[in-house]
Amino acid sequence: MKLPGTPYKNEDFKAGKIPYVEDKPDARYQFSVGIAMSRFLEELRKGKIIGIKCIHCGRVYVPPRTFCSYCFKPTSKWVYVKDTGIVNTAVVSYIAADRGRMDKPLVVAVIELDGASPGMGILHKLGNVDPEDVTSRKIFGKRVRAVWKPEEERTGSITDILYFEPVEED
């Protein structure tokens, strides 16, 4: 069975064999971060991580949100969680957001913060972790702590935390 379609190669494109037009949309956005995340970012600037509790089911959400996905009722109680947590999963990135190779591999993880409900992880980078500790899965289940930017450099962003690093445990 022969199916329809005419493939071409990128080289054909470069050689001018493929007629084309070009478009470069310049879409720019300003997102209001909203009610729940405004407070979250404000607390990050102070060096604290805040979650929010649903008083109906008791879940503590991080990042915070104004409603509970399960109860579909408003979440109403702000609660600070710790800046330590457990590594749920971790990987070693060799490529950047644009698919280019990174000079130095980056370790990123989902971290379940202490004080949040089980499974409520956040994405962040890990520092002072050897890629070998990831591929050997040694880092999985280990406790890590946030390393913060100096206070005067914080802007109210998730990047006010530079990365999480392993907590020395005996």
Binding site: V33, M37, A96, D98, I122, L123, K125, I158
Partner: peptide
């Protein structure tokens, strides 16, 4: 754009 993008996330992560 608040939690993930500032960390330079890519799809493969």
């Amino acid at each position: 754009p608040v939690m993930d993008k500032p960390l330079g996330v890519n799809l493969i992560w």
